[in-house]
Design a protein around this nucleic acid. Structure first.
Ligand SMILES: [Zn+2]
Ligand SMILES: [Zn+2]
Length: 648
DNA sequence: GCATGCGGGCGTT
DNA sequence: AACGCCCGCATGC
């Protein structure tokens, strides 16, 4: 692959100094190595890095400096001052796994702050029509434990390493959630009238917010070129549409593009930009993605992400599908909580909505590169992909951290596996290494352990209830993932093991278990991964709850083939998962808690959800699952990232 | 009000 | 010892 391209980096490009790494520097090193290679070539920013990935960002990569990620990652103390570790909080989904109008599912971004996260849980599903509550679908992507990200800063670069593949849909991008928040503040309005008024206002607000937000996070970076135009937010989506900020489906596509610019760009590649544009589209909101998912599998998605491809991807598939969805969605989804409540009110106006999506896409974007001066837009290639994926999420609770997790999700996870599988697929950006396999396998084992542990655990009950989980939805995820920058590392495997074992306790456990179970069923075990996703979707869609089992069958897909690695891992996990039911295992405190706490508390606000759109993802995607797998590595590979790839 | 980081502390492996 | 994770505290926006 590519390599290398990494794109890179022309500017940066440096090469690695010494090691072999030169070509594949990333792969070569490990975040824990006493000496990290000097890299010249920086990878483009990848907002949705998934899988065992290693990346080296330039010092000027704002996102990297902020240790940002599309995934909701919370800081965890690893007692190592030189390496910042963060673990995935999963995603907020509807306990009922409702489908948004558009077909997407709710997949909100869990608050990083424990307190805030608790508040989120238990709140009513943004989808008014749905009586469900928001639950956390905890991440168990690393051998049953949450996926972890490690950041290490050196004089000349920022090293990033991810361990594990997310087994859940992507949460909304930060920018989106932020926007919501801001909006939310306002939201409370209750009356329709209010709503209406809001809409208008919101639209603007959102827009503005987004703009700001973007700025904050990434957007800022805007590349010179792009920047110019695109106002960030706006750009995102294209305002044109009336859709609410996050929700906007409609225009997304078009608007999307603007954004993209993200990060990568920076270093790497200018090339990206183009993509970016496209990518932007890619990013398009989940919604879009939803539909996309299918696409994505294919290539497009992946590409987008990672590398250049991104561009195309997004637009391509997703959009269309997405759009369709969206339209439908619009009604449903989007509105803020209130809105939801309202009923469907209005979304129409919210132009902003669209933005949201955009944002999402963009999220990645930013960067600035001051240093280099370049713009970094990474384009978010990855993002785009990612986004697409989302939709489908399900609902399980996981609750991760704060609460206990819920089992329900089981099904979902199943789906996830799929994701993973898909992810691995070349397209995404994975880098998979030989090693990966091993790792995976390890994980599997680990997972098994989990299951067992979990089983023990108490929490299971919840899950059981929920059974429905949704990982199904995930399928979309897969797509996203693909898009995103996956990579697998050899070394990781090791980690997994350790992790798994250790982690077991963690919150996730339960969730996993649940998830696992579903998938497990029969054959799933291994293969399930992808297939599962698909199946999930199907299942979910059809019958949410029980889905899992059925889905299992599905799992078997061919998809497995695709990514052995991933799949394997996944599979293993799944099976295990079931076990988990019981308890958390040990988990940490967090788990334990029932949502109760969280949930309800806050209700009032729901606002967050307002943009439903964000939440959901178009169901559409789900079906797609299959593709997911397939996706060709093409996309991502291209990117900078690394191509290490090669392996496959 | 939250996102982030940091670091103490505890439980497991 | 190495991790994972909880929890509180401090910052900054
Ligand atoms: Zn719902
Ligand atoms: Zn995760």
């Amino acid at each position: 692959m590519v390599v290398l391209s990494r794109v890179g980096s022309p500017t940066m490009s440096a090469t690695v100094a010494g090691n072999q790494q030169q070509q594949h520097p990333h792969q070569e090193w490990d975040i824990n190595d006493s000496n990290v290679p000097r890299v010249v070539d920086y990878d483009p920013w990848c907002e949705w890095a998934d899988g065992h990935v290693r990346r080296v960002y330039g010092p000027d990569c704002e996102e990297a400096r902020r240790h940002a990620s599309g995934w909701a990652m919370r800081n965890t103390n690893n007692h190592n001052v030189s390496i910042l570790k963060k673990s995935c909080l999963g995603v907020l989904v509807c306990s009922l796994g409702c489908l948004l109008p558009g077909g997407g599912r709710v997949h909100l971004r869990p608050a990083i702050c424990d307190k805030a996260r608790k508040k989120q849980q238990g709140k009513p599903c943004p989808n008014r029509q749905c009586g469900g509550r928001l639950q956390i679908l905890s991440c168990r992507g690393h051998c049953g434990y949450p996926v972890t990200h490690f950041w290490r800063h050196t004089e000349h670069a920022i090293f990033f390493q991810a361990k594990g593949q997310h087994d859940h849909p992507r949460p909304e991008a930060k920018s989106t959630s932020e926007a919501r928040r801001s909006v939310g503040a306002g939201r409370r309005v209750r009356g329709l009238a209010v709503l209406l008024a809001r809409e208008a206002a919101l639209g603007t607000k959102l827009m503005s917010l987004r703009g700001t937000k973007r700025v904050n996070s990434e957007p800022l970076e805007v590349p010179a070129t792009r920047m110019a135009q695109p106002p960030p937010l706006v750009s995102d989506k294209g305002y044109s549409c009336s859709c609410p900020p996050f929700e906007c489906i409609c225009g997304l596509q078009s608007s999307l593009s603007p954004y993209q610019p993200t990060p990568h760009g920076h270093h790497n590649q200018p090339s990206i930009y183009p993509h970016q544009v496209t990518s932007s589209s890619g990013e398009t909101p989940y919604w879009l993605q939803d539909s996309l998912p299918s696409q994505e599998p294919s290539i497009g998605g992946m590409q987008g992400y990672c590398s250049t491809a991104g561009v195309g991807q997004v637009s391509q598939v997703p959009q269309e599908a997405a759009y369709a969805d969206f339209s439908s969605f619009t009604g449903d989804l989007f509105q803020p909580e209130e809105i939801f409540q309202l009923d469907q009110p209005l979304r129409p106006e919210f132009p902003s909505a669209g933005n949201g999506t955009q944002d999402v896409t963009r999220s990645p974007p930013s960067l600035l590169d001051l240093g280099s001066g370049t713009i970094k837009y990474e384009a978010s290639k990855s993002d785009s992909d990612q986004t697409t994926t989302y939709w489908n999420q399900l609902l399980s609770e996981d609750s991760s951290s704060s609460h206990l997790s819920l089992t329900p999700a089981q099904d979902e996870r199943l789906a996830f596996p799929g994701f993973e599988g898909s992810r691995r697929q070349p397209a995404d950006c994975y880098i998979a290494g030989h090693k990966d396999l091993t790792e995976q396998s390890q994980c599997i084992n680990d997972s098994a352990a989990y299951q067992t542990r979990h089983k023990n655990g108490t929490e299971s009950s919840f899950w059981a209830q929920q059974q429905n989980d949704e990982r199904m939805n995930f399928p979309g995820f897969d797509q996203q993932r693909r898009a995103g920058c996956f990579s697998v590392d050899k070394e990781d495997t090791v980690n997994c093991h350790t992790v798994n074992d250790r982690t077991t306790n963690s919150v996730f456990g339960p969730a996993y278990a649940q998830r696992a179970r579903g998938p497990k069923d029969p054959g799933d075990g291994t293969h399930l991964g992808f297939s599962s996703f698909e199946s999930y979707h199907q299942m979910a869609e059809q019958q949410p709850n029980q889905c899992v089992k059925t889905s299992e069958d599905v799992f078997y897909y061919p998809g497995n083939e695709r990514c052995h690695y991933t799949c394997e891992v996944l599979d293993t996990r799944l099976p295990q998962m079931p076990v988990s039911i019981g308890v958390n295992g040990g988990g940490a405190p967090d788990q334990g808690i029932a949502f109760g706490d969280v949930p309800e508390l806050d209700m009032a606000p729901f606002v967050d959800y307002t943009f439903v759109g964000m939440l959901c993802s178009p169901a559409d995607n789900e079906p797609i699952p299959p593709h997911s797998i397939p996706i060709p590595g093409s996309g991502c590979g291209a990117q900078p990232t690394q191509a290490y790839v090669g392996h496959h």
